[in-house]
């Protein structure tokens, strides 16, 4: 049985902050930070937006784009590390908001930045096993970075939702492969406002080890090579890491440029790779092959090999594209950014 993407949707809040404005507050050299991270600005949630509202908007966008009958939805999984409730599922609120209640299974996932792709894999399994007709996998975050911490320059807000099924596929997921180890490169303890991380330790033992292993593992498993793919997308904690990972694997910048959304968006954590994939689907042609590898600290990577079908043309214009959502931003200064992020508590 074929399994893949029936539809997809993205939501990005309109607010942005430029890295210069963050650097100015902390006395840092903006030019060197921008050059090092390859990020210019990042998205900021509205005062009334959180991971739930972003998940709902992304899911509704996916439903509209694919003209999905939501009574068919048998599962909703939402991956996020910023679920507003510690106990009370995000996914039940999404189910109610898209009209998928009550006959479905739902749960929330947390696996740093790859909880959304874990949700895609779960939906794939349920579809292939025949347990559900279609499932909705969401990655959505209003990611946190402590004031002055390196994460503050990239921690952004946004999300993507994918409707996974076995018929009317806009893209076929040929296979998936995961690589997971116990690597404490990044964490947030219960009740803490901001995550902690291992600094440079998040690089080689974290991101690169897992991304490279999962990507190589999948290509070996299915007998493909980087030159077989028209597009590739890797988790984008900054602009530098995915470029380096692509180079290490033998992908060119040309292959990753369409899905490279981080310079104008920042790191949307669970949404990162999934928004990058959406940016590719916004432009891909029938027959294009896409290679995707997500990474979540803690740590693990999920790799996917995807082929676009002719159905993409039927759904593509049914909802806002990533580049449209990135256009026309409202820029905030640091004080208003801090208010939007709840860093000023009243």
């Amino acid at each position: 049985m074929k399994v893949g993407i029936v539809s997809y949707g993205v939501y990005i809040p309109r607010y942005r902050i430029k890295l210069e404005d963050i650097a100015a507050v902390w006395g840092a050299d903006a030019a060197s930070i921008k050059k090092g991270l390859k990020v210019n600005e990042k998205s900021v949630p509205g005062l009334d937006e959180d991971a739930i509202t972003i998940a709902v908007e992304a899911a509704r966008s996916a439903v509209r784009r694919g003209n999905i009958d939501t009574s068919r939805v048998g599962a909703i999984y939402t991956g996020s590390e910023s679920h507003p409730y510690a106990v009370k599922p995000t996914s039940t609120i999404v189910a109610a908001a898209i009209g998928a209640e009550p006959v479905l299974t739902a749960a929330d996932y947390e696996f740093a930045c790859k909880a959304g792709t874990a949700a895609i894999q779960t939906c794939m399994g349920l579809v292939v096993s025949g347990m559900i007709d279609i499932g909705v996998a969401i990655g959505a975050d209003v990611s946190q970075g402590a004031p002055g911490d390196a994460l503050e320059y990239t921690a952004a807000a946004g999300g993507a939702a994918y409707v996974i099924g076995s018929s009317d596929l806009a893209a076929i997921i040929e296979d998936t492969y995961s690589f997971t180890t116990d690597t404490p490169d990044f964490w947030r303890r219960e009740g803490m406002l901001y995550p902690e991380h291992g600094g440079r330790f998040t690089g080689d033992p974290g991101y690169f080890k897992h991304v490279i292993a999962a990507a190589k593992g999948l290509m070996e498993k299915i007998g493909s090579k980087p030159s077989d793919y028209d597009h590739a997308v890797f988790h984008q904690p900054n602009g530098k890491f995915p470029e380096r990972a692509a180079g290490m694997l033998g992908f060119s910048f040309e292959q990753i440029k369409t899905g490279m959304v981080v310079p104008m968006l920042g790191n949307t954590y669970s949404g990162s790779c999934m928004i990058g994939l959406a940016a590719i689907l916004d432009q891909a042609k029938e027959g294009d092959r896409i290679f995707m590898t997500a990474f979540g600290s803690g740590a693990g990577s999920d790799a996917f090999s995807i082929t676009v079908t002719d159905k993409i043309e039927d759904i593509r214009n049914g909802a806002p594209k990533v580049q449209e959502l990135l256009a026309d931003p409202i820029y905030l200064d640091y004080a208003n950014y801090a208010k939007h992020k709840g860093k000023i508590r009243v």
Binding site: D50, E57, P84
Partner: peptide, 17 residues
């Protein structure tokens, strides 16, 4: 229409969407 937080009962209470 858009889906947003309408308010919350309190810091510990439920969130109204």
């Amino acid at each position: 229409p858009v889906f947003r937080k309408l308010g919350e009962e309190s810091e510990k209470g439920m969130i109204y969407y």
